[in-house]
Design a protein around this nucleic acid. Structure first.
Lengths: 194, 194
DNA sequence: GCTCAAAACTAATGATTATTAGTTTATTTT
DNA sequence: AAAATAAACTAATAATCATTAGTTTTGAGC
């Protein structure tokens, strides 16, 4: 019944392996074994190992920029935009469980020809994120003394790393996870002094 | 004047390369080139490529557990202990600029014989961190509704990722960086409503 | 300048690996 | 069922790489 493209199966298996062992440590053998075929047979469906990595990463990059565009084109206030960004990360983490893990380290193995395209998308995303933080600071939602570079880095670290946590605690739902993250990331761990 | 052991030079060069290209993508050639010698000559100083990775990672693990022990054996209150943990990460990030980057991803390439030892140290560290968070919650410094698993994951994500940020902004000093992180991580990004 | 050890070099080995070529088997279309 | 296409297989290639063996160079202490 499950009409899953072989090409997609290959990409899914590869994503899982790239995540666990890393791109370089994953052989075409490994991927083929996961599908019960011989390594050479993979080439009936894909062009190269590099193509798999490229498509996995570019797909993720597209999903993030599309989500960011939606948020920026919305009429939400700054505070809600920040919350929607957290939602975006949580949603994509659930949706692309395996391949999202590649954005923290495996992107370095992209072909030198592709790498700049990937990094450009990444930069655009971070700049858009920063723009929202700046709006917040202008509206005094964020204190003037806060270094926004550090704030951005800190939030993105947690959100990039989410997939790791999600794998260890698959029981906690999307909504609860997003709510907790908003509380901790945006409003702080330590209860404000009364 | 600088009497640096060749062995140390090798480990330093390797750390830089492992960080940039990953363990598997870094060849002994690469390391040798960085030192202006031939690959085979490395073996006059080290046992294997794996030995380099092991020593780099175990060194970091030791530094973290030692720092954690100091904090737990201190008589600081819970709040200050949390702040000292941030200091610990910032200090080690400055001290082990390159090799600290390996803790986010390259530890998976540790020999299967060594890996459990590494993971045990890592677990111990995280459990000690969690114990401090639990004390904070018991003392109402952290709200009862906060999920401490998520809080721990979130803080550690930012602190693990620090080396990345530090490399892009080497101009900001330790003290300023630590102060900002304490503010953002512990007391939140969004100013509390008055 | 000789001795000895440390540390460099050259050359080879064996293993792994991504990819290609050529062939056979399965499946779909006609 | 014949033909055509898709997808599997076997076998080979060429490159890379960690590591070893054996040899030469370097440099400090005598």
């Amino acid at each position: 019944m499950t009409e899953v493209n072989k090409r997609t199966q290959i990409k899914n298996a590869a994503a899982k392996l790239f995540r666990k062992k890393g791109y370089r440590a994953t052989s075409m053998q490994d991927i083929a074994d996961a599908l019960g075929i011989k390594a050479a047979s993979l080439y009936n469906h894909i062009k190269s190992k590099q193509e798999i990595l490229t498509e996995l990463l570019m797909n993720i990059a597209l999903a993030f920029t599309a989500g960011m565009d939606d948020i920026r084109n919305s009429s939400l206030d700054e505070n809600s935009q920040l919350e929607e960004l957290v939602n975006l990360h949580v949603n994509l983490t659930f949706k692309y469980k395996d391949s999202i893990a590649l954005i923290t380290g495996e992107w370095v193995h992209l072909d030198p020809e592709i790498l700049p395209q990937y990094l450009e998308k990444r930069n655009n995303y971070e700049e858009a994120f920063m723009a929202i933080l700046e709006s917040c600071q202008k509206k005094k939602l964020i204190s003037e003394s806060t270094n926004l570079d550090i704030a951005l880095f800190s939030i993105l670290s947690s959100l990039h790393w989410l997939y790791n946590w999600h794998n260890k605690n698959p029981d906690l739902g999307k909504i609860e996870l997003a709510a907790q993250l908003k509380k901790i990331l945006l409003h702080g761990l330590i209860s404000p002094k009364k």
